[in-house]
Amino acid sequence: MTVQLHTPLGDEVLALHAGDHVELSGMVYTARDEAHLRMQKEGIPFDAEGAAVYHCGPVIHNNRVIAAGPTTSARMNMLTKFLLDRGVRAVIGKGGMGEAVREQLCGRGVYLAFTGGCAALAASHMTLRGVFFEDLGMAEAVWILELDHLPLVVGIDAQGNDIFESVRARANKEFGRYSKVQGLSDK
């Protein structure tokens, strides 16, 4: 079952569970490292209430989105709290986020994962609607994108369930079956 979501988001995101497939429509705002730093300093240029922020540095050509896959979200681990405090309900990216963001999302919002490398597919679900902070350059600017049913999966839900964390725990346990290596450094 795929859950349909539309921005601005509200309390419906609280009912989502890690592992749920969703399709997101409506406006989202791209932001990478530089945009987060700028928004912290100068304020958020869009209405943050119910907004969705997408970790993405798209390729824009002739006012069209050519490629817009996700970037690694963990780089924004320390830069996300102010957005959630201001009402952002969904963070979209790849690879998951740290423990701090998992706690900050509790009772407020969700982390949605989009498949890394799927830039052409992402672009086919998007229309460019505007831009903030264009002086930061194409990759770092905040682009306003209108999504049409972008297929995502809930990576971290509002109850503290985190797929990435459970996968990590299982992988670590599996790796435990290899004995510790006795190398030169251990003597």
Binding site: G57, V59, I66, A67, T115, G117, A119, A120, L121, P151
Partner: peptide
């Protein structure tokens, strides 16, 4: 794994989309 199946579905569709439109698969 159903979540992984969804990821594969996106990957396969992305490959088709890039070929049809003649655009790069990935922005990197």
């Amino acid at each position: 794994n159903p979540v992984a199946q969804g990821e594969f579905h996106n990957i396969v569709r992305n490959i088709e989309q890039a070929e049809t439109l003649g655009v790069p698969l990935c922005q990197d």
